[in-house]
């Protein structure tokens, strides 16, 4: 690990960079106990992301760990890729691209859920798209986060079932649900995956309608998962830090389910949309009910189980997202969450 990082660094900037950043890398490896976790999170924090943002900023310090050092990377695919480099330690990323990376030979582990299921819905411009079949039209362009991630699969699955030839659909990539929101509103694209709280706002601004609701199509669906690299996790200190992250996330899930006041505070504090920062308790409660109770995005036990993946694998395979050759035992690591649950009860 250290060796690889050294090679990478000297590659990055020749000898000079090697000299500069080498000490930096050393401190990171040896003083892991006290170092803040370096986490990449997606571009926007909406209702569904609030608990894990609270976990990495508020609950980690309560557990005696430093708050995470996080950065926003809007493309989900890129989040998975950035873990491979070793520069970022943990990603709140996409399970499908992680599975694909492992199929290609990468050593990545999914250690838990950042949230379960999805609050995403696929919203289209009602003037141009009425049914799934309309997606094939030449003048219709849809934007997904990045090709082959869950924002893509949630469209491909139902569309293929409805007999749509995905090769005929114009698909572009656009990171960040906020960007997609604005692009759809401005008429630059005709269909985008958005979080349902955004979809509700959009509906008030024109003829936009929800075409696909994954919550209705799929019984279980993976949202964002915590991704780490395998050899990073082998370091005992890192394992302890990862465990703290999962403890904090689970605690945040439970708090979000149980404590409306706390969730509302965190919602206003970490929400990236301006309207979120000024939302009233009542408005937030609607969101919390829909996500936590109706869809069940924050299970009290995190629901990070092998069974979920076994069930979803054929779905992803059918959507052409993965080859299906992946060995789940190598990717999905449930040992940490088991320990956490045993301690938390």
């Amino acid at each position: 690990m250290l060796n690889r990082r050294t090679v990478l660094k000297s590659l990055a900037a020749g000898a000079g960079a090697g000299l500069l950043s080498q000490p930096f890398g050393m401190t990171r490896a040896f003083a892991a106990d006290h170092a803040a976790l370096k986490i990449n999170v997606p571009g926007n924090t909406l209702g569904v992301h609030v608990p894990y943002m609270a976990a990495i900023n508020e609950i980690l310090p309560e557990l005696g760990e430093p708050a995470a050092a996080w950065e926003r990377v809007p493309k989900l695919q890129t989040i998975t890729q950035s873990i491979l480099s070793g520069q970022t330690e943990v990603g709140a990323g996409d399970a499908i691209s992680t599975l694909r990376a492992v199929e290609a030979g990468a050593d990545l582990k999914i250690i838990g859920n950042a949230f379960m299921h999805t609050s995403l819905v696929f919203v289209v411009n009602g003037d141009k798209v009425d049914t799934l079949k309309d997606l094939e039209k030449d003048d219709v362009t849809i934007a997904v986060n990045s090709k082959g991630d869950f924002t893509h699969v949630m469209v491909v699955g139902p569309a293929t079932q409805a007999g749509v030839d995905m090769d005929k659909v114009n698909v572009i990539k656009m990171g960040g649900s906020g960007n997609r929101f604005r692009a759809l509103l401005a008429g630059k694209v005709d269909g985008v995956p958005l979080h349902f709280d955004q979809a509700a706002e959009l509906a008030t601004q024109g003829n936009f309608k929800v075409l696909i609701e994954p919550a209705k199509v799929y019984e279980a669906f993976l949202g964002e998962v915590w991704i780490v690299s395998g050899n990073w996790l082998e370091v005992p200190e890192n394992r302890a830090r990862a465990k703290a992250l999962l403890t904090a996330t689970t605690m945040a899930f439970r708090k979000a389910n149980a404590d409306a006041g706390w969730y509302a505070d965190m919602y206003r504090k970490y929400g990236t949309k301006e309207s979120m920062q000024t939302a009233s308790d009542e408005e937030i409660e609607v969101v919390r009910q829909a996500l936590g109770v109706d869809i069940g995005t924050w299970p009290n036990d995190m629901n990070h189980r092998m069974g979920v993946y076994e069930q979803l694998l054929p779905v992803y395979e059918a959507a052409g997202a993965i080859k299906g050759s992946v060995d789940l035992n190598k990717v999905v690591d449930t040992s940490l969450i088991d320990e956490v649950l045993a301690e938390l009860g």
Binding site: L8, L11, A12, A17, N40, Q81, S82, L84, S85, Q87
Partner: peptide, 13 residues
């Protein structure tokens, strides 16, 4: 991105 991630090292490289 694969080699350096998305942060400091990536942009420097």
């Amino acid at each position: 991105i694969l080699m350096f991630g998305t942060g400091f090292e990536f942009r420097v490289a």
